[in-house]
Measured scan of single mutants.
Amino acid sequence: MPVRRGHVAPQNTFLDTIIRKFEGQSRKFIIANARVENCAVIYCNDGFCELCGYSRAEVMQRPCTCDFLHGPRTQRRAAAQIAQALLGAEERKVEIAFYRKDGSCFLCLVDVVPVKNEDGAVIMFILNFEVVMEKDMVGSPAHDTNHRGPPTSWLAPGRAKTFRLKLPALLALTARESSVRSGGAGGAGAPGAVVVDVDLTPAAPSSESLALDEVTAMDNHVAGLGPAEERRALVGPGSPPRSAPGQLPSPRAHSLNPDASGSSCSLARTRSRESCASVRRASSADDIEAMRAGVLPPPPRHASTGAMHPLRSGLLNSTSDSDLVRYRTISKIPQITLNFVDLKGDPFLASPTSDREIIAPKIKERTHNVTEKVTQVLSLGADVLPEYKLQAPRIHRWTILHYSPFKAVWDWLILLLVIYTAVFTPYSAAFLLKETEEGPPATECGYACQPLAVVDLIVDIMFIVDILINFRTTYVNANEEVVSHPGRIAVHYFKGWFLIDMVAAIPFDLLI
């Protein structure tokens, strides 16, 4: 008679799926529990143990900040960024110097990925580790590398530091407007667009060049630039800015003055950032001319202004700041037409079709709590990747769950009947059967004279019903998954307890 339990259901295979997918890609990662103190490590794979030199037993239950890997060259700011990422709910990448158990130093890129439950609360953290440099290539500990984003994938490793954006290309926007319009339909740009040429040739750093990471940081200074100062900065030398009595002219307006920039070969870094931020506020060169004239017309309804409409929906549905990093990277690809469009465009503009998908598509409701890094690593669709929660398995109709209350009560009843059979069957065979043979035949009273025979008949009927119930009862397979398919249940029961239950259900007393 089957006594099969499996009270692990309803099970959740999400954690096993993450481990299996990460292991298949030869990654070095740990999984931490966000619900406990210090976000203790609950799993670390073999790749991480080989990377740091510690065994799994030495890593388990330690804080996922990996303070046991810190050393003299470990930056405090990087460690603080990892700790801050564990307090938030967004994906974050941090470069930090770690030390192995043998004392060797290596520069590592740590990717902190939160995993949320159905309520939107962070319950786990996945920390992925990628070695960037070994100890002989690690720089000085005073050099802070965590304020910069990861290198873009479309640049060669040897040319990542030679990417320079020439400031004269930004200063000569109005001069290039006529050349853009003359391109017409034969050019790649839309009317009114501004073409910015980027020099990728390796050259020595000069005062006129600005690194790509500095251009990325310009967006942080746009908020500090007032509207009046932006307007004066875009007017140009024809209309000098008016300053109040006793007030000095704005240095932001002076930063885009061609006369002032041409007199000296070098520009201050602050002026460069502010000038680029001011130019980015204009949607095209037409807006710059309109600002000089004193009238700013409404933005025209053409394809170039609607190019950012799908980007707005993608940004609203993005799951991490990696989408913004990807957008900034692609927006700086050289030799393309940049349409400086305000994100607050007309909502009635139709979304044009684009061959290049900048932001990841909208994630469906079932995966809105899973970050983009987890979705990318697992390579699963929205119909396959579940949320991290207890999910009731989908069972067929008329199927009994093996952990249901009805099955528990039924098993206790069958257990009592088995005990009765084990006690009274030998007793009936030894004593009652002998008395029946010696006594007179009682054929007239039937079952009324033999109450134990009636009980034995009921017990046999219950055993037959138990066999039928076992054909529709779920079970737990070797992978700790609840199986509810009727065919698989029948095959599993035939290979197991079916023969024993059938022999126990045969009414031998009635056959004798």
Rank of each mutant, 00 (worst) to 15 (best):
R159D: 11
M218W: 11
Q247W: 14
I336M: 12
D342V: 01
V325Q: 14
M133G: 14
V222H: 05
E177M: 06
R366F: 13
V112T: 09
L127T: 01
Q25M: 07
A307Q: 11
I82H: 01
R281Q: 04
L165M: 06
G149D: 10
L267N: 05
Q11V: 13
A307W: 14
Q81W: 05
T375K: 09
A253D: 06
D119L: 10
G236L: 07
A211W: 01
G226Q: 06
L69W: 01
A277C: 14
P150W: 06
V384E: 04
L210W: 15
E37N: 11
D144R: 06
R159V: 12
E130M: 09
M291N: 07
C276F: 04
P151L: 15
I18Y: 07
R27A: 14
V113F: 13
C64S: 09
G184D: 14
S261R: 10
A172Y: 01
D321A: 14
D259F: 15
L343D: 05
A285I: 11
I363S: 08
D213Y: 03
S239E: 10
P141C: 08
K135C: 09
A293V: 08
R76V: 13
P237C: 10
I96Q: 06
E58I: 01
R271P: 14
K344Q: 14
G88S: 14
V370C: 10
P72M: 03
R27N: 06
A57M: 12
G224T: 05
L165S: 14
K93Q: 13
T74M: 01
F129A: 01
N38E: 14
N369G: 06
D346G: 11
R35V: 13
V138G: 13
G236Q: 01
E365C: 12
H143S: 09
R20Y: 04
K362A: 09
A185L: 08
R77A: 13
D259P: 05
L87P: 01
H70L: 03
V341F: 04
H302N: 11
A79R: 10
V222I: 11
L165W: 11
L378T: 02
P310F: 09
Q61S: 12
H309M: 05
S322G: 12
V112I: 15
D287K: 13
N146S: 15
L212R: 07
R252S: 14
K21P: 04
L86P: 01
R148K: 12
A285E: 12
A203G: 07
D102W: 01
G158L: 14
T201N: 06
R77V: 15
S304M: 15
A217G: 13
F68E: 01
E357W: 06
G184P: 14
R92W: 03
L155N: 15
R100E: 01
S104I: 06
G236V: 15
V377L: 14
R76G: 13
R366Q: 06
G189N: 15
I336V: 14
A57Q: 15
A350M: 13
R281K: 15
T371H: 04
S379K: 05
F68S: 01
S331R: 11
E230N: 05
D213C: 06
A223T: 14
G24D: 13
D111N: 13
R4Q: 12
P299Q: 14
F348V: 11
T17F: 11
P2V: 06
G184M: 11
D287T: 09
V131D: 15
L349D: 07
D144T: 15
I288H: 05
A89W: 13
D287M: 07
V110P: 01
R20G: 10
D346C: 09
G120C: 07
M60R: 01
S264V: 09
S243F: 05
C108S: 08
R312Y: 11
S278N: 08
S283H: 08
A89S: 14
S250Y: 05
R20E: 09
F340V: 15
I82S: 01
N38S: 15
K364S: 11
A211Y: 09
Y54D: 01
P205A: 15
L316F: 07
K166C: 06
E50K: 10
E230L: 05
I288Q: 04
V377E: 03
R301C: 12
A253Q: 08
T162H: 15
